[in-house]
Simulated assay, not measured.
Amino acid sequence: MKIAIYGREFSAATLPYVQQIFDELNKQGAELLVYEKFSHFISDKVSALQMRGTFSRYGEIKGAVDVMLSLGGDGTMLDTVTLIRDSNIPVIGINLGRLGFLASISKDDISTAIQSLVSGDYTIDSRDLLKVETDTPVFGDENFALNDLTIHRRDNSAMMIIHAYLNGEFLNSYWADGLIVATPTGSTAYSLSCGGPIVFPKSGNFVVTPISPHNLNVRPVVISDSYTLTFELEGRSSKYLLSCDSRTEVIDCSMRFSVSKADFQINLVRLKNESYLSTLRNKMLWGIDTRNY
């Protein structure tokens, strides 16, 4: 199996797990293509490092690998989306971080997970993305997000006013610190911490969640992902922040932009002992009662 590996810099405490990952991959006879910056970082840290080569861009892995392996947390997994794009390369994450909704393989299950991956003992969980289109290019050809798009105030404490339109019809003017448009995948991320609902994958929805709204009767709304949202900004500041997952750019308040469903999906690898419901229960600690401890 040909496997692309993406990762970020890590602490010394994480090194034994990274070493175990590469040892197991070598044991399974996998052909490895490692992200260039990550390869430089681990070159003097991981012993017996065997790899076929390195990559740094989308075009270097499209059609060249069978699967992408992300080493880190959910943020690292989101980084891989810009490398995979519409290539249909499946991606799986080993959680070397904290919560790990997307990077769902725990450090204790490294060997078993890699064995299952190489043997093809897994299923594919396809997830929808959203895309943002602006008056002038902001994110270039990386104008898509697996989790969410966020509009946020930048350089002062004043609220911003976000005028939202749904398929051209006025939806609401949000007086808030910002606004999140989340996919079902992203409904368990920033949107959830701002009071948004959990939306199951394949529900065909987006969630619009205000960040610290001034009007407390303004609540998150769930809309069909067949709709197009359009936004106009107003406020005391001339500049605001626009984020696609972990990528953030400064935009002018005069910019008008729209959000809609992207025309491709991301394929997440799910091992046979995984399910969305079990992940929810484990990560959200559902059913755990502190009186029992």
Rank of each mutant, 00 (worst) to 15 (best):
K2C: 08
A4Q: 14
Y6W: 11
G7Y: 04
R8E: 06
F10S: 03
A13R: 13
L15D: 12
Y17V: 04
E24Y: 00
L25P: 13
G29H: 10
E31A: 13
E31Y: 13
E31S: 14
L32Q: 13
L33I: 06
Y35S: 01
Y35V: 00
I42N: 00
D44M: 01
D44L: 02
S47A: 13
A48K: 10
Q50Y: 08
M51E: 09
E60Q: 15
I61E: 09
I61T: 10
I61N: 07
G63F: 03
L69M: 04
L71F: 09
L71M: 11
D74V: 05
G75Y: 05
G75W: 06
L78P: 15
L78E: 10
D79K: 11
T80P: 05
V81Q: 06
D86G: 02
I92K: 06
I92T: 10
N95A: 10
L96N: 12
G97W: 09
R98I: 02
A103F: 04
S104G: 02
D108A: 10
I110G: 04
S111C: 08
T112E: 15
A113C: 07
I114P: 01
Q115C: 03
L117S: 06
Y122S: 08
I124A: 06
D125G: 04
L129I: 02
L130Y: 03
T136V: 11
V138Y: 07
T150G: 07
H152M: 08
D155I: 03
M160E: 03
E169M: 10
F170C: 00
L171A: 05
L171Q: 06
N172G: 02
W175Y: 03
L179H: 03
I180R: 00
T183V: 07
G186V: 02
G186L: 01
S191N: 09
S193D: 02
G196D: 05
V199I: 14
N205W: 00
V208T: 01
T209C: 14
I211L: 03
I211K: 00
S212C: 15
N215H: 11
V218F: 03
V218E: 11
R219I: 02
R219W: 02
P220S: 02
V221N: 00
I223D: 01
S224I: 01
S224V: 01
D225T: 03
D225K: 04
L229V: 13
T230G: 07
L233A: 04
S238W: 01
K239V: 13
L241V: 04
R247C: 08
R247S: 13
E249T: 02
E249S: 14
V250G: 01
C253V: 13
S258K: 12
V259S: 06
S260P: 14
A262N: 07
Q265R: 15
N267M: 09
L268G: 01
V269G: 11
R270F: 08
L271G: 09
K272V: 12
N273R: 09
E274T: 10
S278G: 08
N282C: 13
N282T: 15
K283M: 12
G287M: 10
G287P: 15
N292W: 13
Y293W: 10
